[in-house]
Design a protein around this nucleic acid. Sequence first.
RNA 1: GCCGGAGUGGCGGAAUGGUAUACGCGCGCGACUCAAAAUCGCGUCUCGAAAGGGAUGAGGGUUCGAGUCCCUCCUCCGGCACCA
Length: 1125
Amino acid sequence: MKSYEHKSIEKKWTKQWEKDVLYKTSDKAKGKDNYYLLVEFPYPSGNLHVGHWYAFAVPDILARFRRMQGKNVLYPIGFDAFGLPAENAAIKNKLNPRKWTLGNIEYMKKQIRSMGTSFDWSREVVTCDPAYYRWTQWLFLQFFKAGLVYRKETAVNWCPKDKTVLANEQVVDGKCERCDSEVVQKQMLQWNIKITDYAERLINDLDALDWPKEIKESQKNWIGRSEGAEIDFPLSIDSGVKRFVLLHGREATPQDNFWPWIKAELESKGYEVQIPTLPNTNEPNDKEQADYVEKHCTLDESTAIIGHSFGGIVALRLLERGHKVQRVTLVSAPVSGKFLDTKVRASVTAAAKKGFDYKKIQKAAKGFVVMYDTTDKIVPVSDAQTLAKELDCILIPGKGSEVHFTGKREPDVLMASIPTIRVFTTRPDTLFGGTFLVLAPEHPWVKLALAHKTVLKNNDEVQQYVNQASKKKEIERLAAGREKTGVELKGVKAVNPTTGKEIPVWVADFAIATFGTGALFGDAHDERDVEFATKYGIPLKETVEPLVVRTTGLDAVREGEPFAERNSVMAFVQHWSEDKYMAVKYKPVDVRGCVSGGMNEGEDAVAAGKREIAEETGYANAKLVRKLGGTIHSKYFSDNRKKNTFAHFTPMLFKLEDATQVDIAPDEKNRHEVSWLSEKEMTAFINHEDWRIAWDRLQGRPYTGKGILYDSAEFSEMTSEEAIPLTGAKFGRMTKTYKLRDWIVSRQRYWGVPIPMIHCAKCGTVPVPDKELPVKLPEVKDYLPEGSGKSPLAKAKKWVNVKCPKCKGKAERETDTLDTFVDSSWYFLRYTDPKNSKQFAASGKQESWMPVDLYSGGAEHTTMHVLYSRFWHKALFDLGLVKEPEPYTRRMNRSLILGPDGQKMSKSRGNVIDPDEVVGRLGADTVRMYLAFIGPYNEVSSFPWNPDSVVGVRRFLERVWKAQEYAGKTDNAGLENLLHKTIKKVGEDIGAMKFNTAISALMIFQNALEKEKTLGKSQWERFLQLLAPFAPHIAEELWAESGQKKSVHKTLWPEYDVSMLKSEFITVAIQINGKTRGEAEVAADADKEMVEKAAREAVASRLEGKKILRTIVVPGRLVNFVIEE
RNA sequence: GCCGGAGUGGCGGAAUGGUAUACGCGCGCGACUCAAAAUCGCGUCUCGAAAGGGAUGAGGGUUCGAGUCCCUCCUCCGGCACCA
């Protein structure tokens, strides 16, 4: 017999299968259900590593098995071909990134084919292929048209030496990876996609998915929903503003837009509001409207003006005429006469083009604020920039709730116009104890105050702090440890809306600008707040008394029984001479803490404490050190009085003056165990939450849990749970906020999908018309950054300069490219219809396969790719472009293959396993099977590659090979039983992705076969079928050797007969008191009595003279005799 | 700190609440061989001469019976991290 030569066998069958187009998948197959198995497509880095094998070859076992089960299986592959490595290689070696990438793809395809995977290559998808990215662009434009895409100033990593934007992974320890110079933050206009609009659905829809818990939890945490309230704290700076004059824009009236809302808001805060109905609003004239305002409104030094759009021009005209006012807010005021919207009429342009006497205007008001809407499609940003520069004032980018601030509510406008700080809190129940405000250094109001210069008494100090905070950003904020820093805004106080009291306002970098509203109120029930307040001597006020309900253990509250209220004391006792505390264990219910007990009628807490100390422990001379804060409420079951108790504890600290003892009643002595412990030991000793709260207070730690309110007006005596919605609604509104930020998709890179947008001076940002897609990547000479922060695409001047699709005037293309996560957010849809040139995927084709049945990939993509693609799919669903709201029915994360040393494989460690080398030596079948055998595939873990263990799998295949000598000849009835069991086990385990135990079952059969050395042809062939998904080449070879003409991979999975799974006799275990003490062989169909009888005989000697209290018989398993010890 | 996952032989790991350590590796002994490799056979948690006993990170609980369920703690891995 020939020896097992994997090389020739594998080569032969790879070729044959390709010739037979064995794995081409049609969209529908008669009588077969479709099954879509997806693995993450690789980045074409140029070389296949063991991780790729683990990712592709192991799920291939499942793909093959499902096919043998009679399913029509789609198992596709492609390449995620855009990205930074190609560009880096291009710069470094002066290559064309396309050639580099395509070359790598060719090479990797050969390697992937060597795995024996059953991929349908006819459906290959490559993201850098214009036929693919045309649809990436098209889908992006659909999002744009649906209002999901906007541009926003965002900080990017900037290397001042290379003059380029850096990706996060190119920043190492705050330095540029290439030139080692310090990376700074630079504000740039970036394309964003509104994933935050979907935050709620991305969390809620997880519930219905059959995904591993850890993946769901990760995504939930990443999205980071917090439920709470937004509350406005008015600032009591003496700005001198008593009156607001509101000037509306063109084609508007005081009843339109946000005017009614803002009027009500201002009036509710005690301001007088004047809002004239300006004349000729359709064709407005600035002079005429200014005249009208002069006649109908009061303009003096206690007046503030808010001018929106054309109203802004009117405001400027009024100041030009010499009216002196306190403050002016200019909102989206058009001052250049250039518009993004061509519909704006000549009258506005004319008014703006007259120009303004900015010098005079600047003197006419004490302060200006200029605001623009980052999503504005009418007035260009440059107008706001001009204004801010000319008036030397603060410029605030805002976000309109409707474009150009035309929504019913425009909070950003209000915020810029009146001094109010909106905070977010999850604990509005602690609002009465809010004793200070903290603003993030980037908070718009801080900018505003600094720009006014006169608002803050310590302007320079605050400015310095803000500058410093922006410089240190992520890098130093982390390195600087957790020491909190901040500066008080002097000259400003906020008013706590619950009490009307003035509280200080601070700026501190522990407040995060991008979370909630960028501002918070500090109180005594938050660890961070307390730490900060303590450091800076800010007063604190507690308003929540702890409430603990014991729900586990012997003293857990008895459901449904009434509570007896009780005033009690909790007394910690210090040793008279040592630095130790008295630890008291109340033995009946294992409560470990301190002395405690109820107060007697007319007794005060201190006296009760002293009395209890004496009664429980005998120590006679205890002296009060201090009370440990306010009452601690506790609900528990009293072992002593046998009823539910609602106790109100006064926690105290005593110190013994000496060791004097008095007699203790015997029953007290029995119940209490006293020892002396150090502070650290005491912390570990205490085992009840209420005791721990008092102990924490003793050590100066605040109470941060929920409880019962006090000193909180009508909310006093409510629980936190009751008070949260009520206080939230009364002083603000209940809302949700998320940690998730919008998705910044702009990349200043060459090797990506060009963003299909055109910038026109006249028409603004215009999408490229569908018929001009794809916008192909231009050829450029080199791939170095352009130098101004733009991507290398900006160098292709001919490509950049285009005609505006709208006005046909001069325009420029967008030069940023899309984040590669955009490419991978929909590739699985393209697999369903990869060649379609009319649509990204025809809906009929999608329906054949979507949603994906199982998606296997790396854990590192849990909160990136998987979340992005879920969002993308939901957006497509809302646009009616896909039929299902979730793309993946099941998702599973793959484990990691480590080097033989148990470390992550890396060239520098020298522990990299080269799969090509191992395949050459041992064969693809061995490598596939070893990886499947290494550990359970359905759990996330990490497995070291063991070079010895691989050989074990090879040995197994060799033994199978040798078995053909004697197998396939004479039927072996004795093995038929085991064969059926194996068929069942292997099938079930593959379905559960437990390939390791499936292989173990195959090995067990093989071991049995070697003992017997006979096996019938049908038996042998069924065994080969079981082997086929794991080791497709050798199984096919042996299958053919056995005389079969059709491929084993086209056959149906063998059936097992349930009746064959049972054997005639079974062994039952015999236990005595639950410990295994013997076994007995009984007939499989023996009834309970017979089994028990057999068992009794088997362990007769042990049962002799013992009384059997109980006998448990588990049919087919065991007998347990419970006897007297 | 918070959220998740996991702790079982020398190693990877197996075990619907029912005989813990399947399968594989490694190791030991033996067969074959002049010898080695390969291959095959036997053995391999631990204490004990044996009879027996003890072990699934530690401690407690529920149960006739716990690696598996519950509580407390410890360790490791992954994620998030001053998130109000």
